[in-house]
């Protein structure tokens, strides 16, 4: 099991995967918006999306767990 964490503070602009999706290492799973810029967050390992902890529009801090893979 692995986690995808926010690399910086910002708001969740888009969630591009759903629970149950197979994702590959390096694939963008969530796009944050920070300082007027879109920041794609990629999965660091392959897996199936087990749980998504945030909703579009949520504010997250650096290090927050965005979603979990297994």
């Amino acid at each position: 099991m692995s986690q995808v964490v926010a690399s910086m503070a910002g708001s969740v602009w888009k969630i591009v995967v759903a629970v149950g999706d197979q994702v590959e290492e390096g694939q963008d799973v969530i796009i944050l918006e920070s300082m007027k810029m879109e920041i794609p967050i990629a999965a660091e390992s392959s897996g199936v999306v087990k749980q998504i902890n945030v909703q579009e529009g949520d504010f997250v801090n650096e290090g927050d767990v965005l979603l979990e893979l297994e």
Partner: peptide, 13 residues
């Protein structure tokens, strides 16, 4: 700018 000088990604904090 509050950003990384190489990637130009934002750096709030």
């Amino acid at each position: 700018y509050a950003e990384d000088p190489k990637t130009f990604l934002p750096s709030p904090g």
